[in-house]
């Protein structure tokens, strides 16, 4: 049988596609179906839930801002500059994409932990200790999430017509002015898409956070950590927390898609 479906999708593509969609959507449906809807109100009213949610939103947002401030320049250097060793640089910068987050957490410990290469002088001279603080959460999330932003902004820069930058130069704009007034507005959809990806990744960060920042309610216990912990003592609470996380992620994605990403969305 080689009947084609309504949308003209060939069967060998249609069947795996449907299977794949089911695979991706069913777990989310399961979450919704098994949710203890009657006790959801009291569950959400718990102080720890609010704390974890606020901390998650705050630290993911700060991590995204930091990633924008550092990651967009990295992307520009990778896409536009003519410095040597750019491919090595790109590989290094994107290692956290493939690195298990736990390993990232360990690595952060070795560098800015209290006994770390940078962390020790920081603690001995300034009395600053980073691990197990909210700052540590932001650092862990930035480490894991920034490469997503760098990759998508670099892609947007490469796709943008560099001749607009030539035109700006002939109009008296130096490279910094050109970047601010021409390049950045041209790749704004790509930057927005990268920021959303980065934020979502930071929101879901677990491994590096629990390794480097620990699991202290109020200061370092983000939603994913709370979910994991709750699963061990109170599965119902874990489901509720997961639902909240799902709703926040989905809501943000839909909102940003309509508001900023528009038709040129890359996500």
């Amino acid at each position: 049988m080689s009947r084609r479906g309504e949308g003209g999708v060939p069967v060998p593509l249609l069947v795996p596609a449907l299977l794949g969609i089911a695979f991706l959507v069913l777990p989310l449906l399961g979450l919704v179906i098994r949710a203890p809807w009657s006790s959801i109100g009291p569950q959400l009213a718990q102080q720890e839930v609010g704390q974890a949610l606020r901390l998650s939103l705050f630290s993911a947002t700060v991590a995204t801002v930091v990633s924008l401030l550092l990651g967009v320049p990295i992307a520009w250097v990778l896409a536009r500059s003519r410095i040597r060793g750019r491919s090595v640089l790109r590989a290094l910068v994107t290692v956290p994409l493939v690195l298990p987050p736990v390993v990232g957490g360990v690595a952060l410990f070795l560098v800015i932990g209290r006994q770390g290469i940078l962390g020790r002088p920081l603690y001995e001279h300034l009395g600053v200790s980073i691990p197990f603080t909210t700052t540590a959460v932001v650092i862990a999330e930035t480490f894991v999430a920034m490469p997503f932003l760098v990759i998508s902004v670099e892609g947007a820069l490469r796709a943008a017509d560099a001749r607009f930058e030539d035109a700006a130069a002939t109009l008296g704009a130096d490279r910094w002015t050109t970047f601010r007034r021409v390049t950045l507005p041209l790749v704004a959809p790509g930057v927005a898409a990268g920021a959303v990806l980065c934020w979502a990744r930071a929101l879901g960060e677990f491994g590096a956070t629990i390794t480097f920042a620990g699991n202290f309610p109020g200061t370092t216990q983000t939603m994913p950590l709370a979910v994991y912990l709750a699963l061990q003592r109170d599965p119902e609470a874990a489901i509720v927390l997961s639902l909240v996380l799902l709703a926040v992620s989905l809501g943000t994605l839909l909102l940003l898609r309509d508001r900023w990403l528009g038709r040129s969305a890359v996500v």
Binding site: A167, A169, T170, L171, G172, A173, D174, R181, L186
Partner: peptide, 30 residues
């Protein structure tokens, strides 16, 4: 950008995110 020149390209290369007036004013603003 430090030379006193004006250039017209084959496919105009007007900046798509700026209005026509802002495009024309660009060289003066810089």
């Amino acid at each position: 950008h430090e030379r006193s020149l004006g250039m017209v390209f084959q496919d105009h290369l007007l900046f798509p995110h700026l209005s026509v007036t802002e495009n024309v004013a660009f060289g003066l603003r810089t």
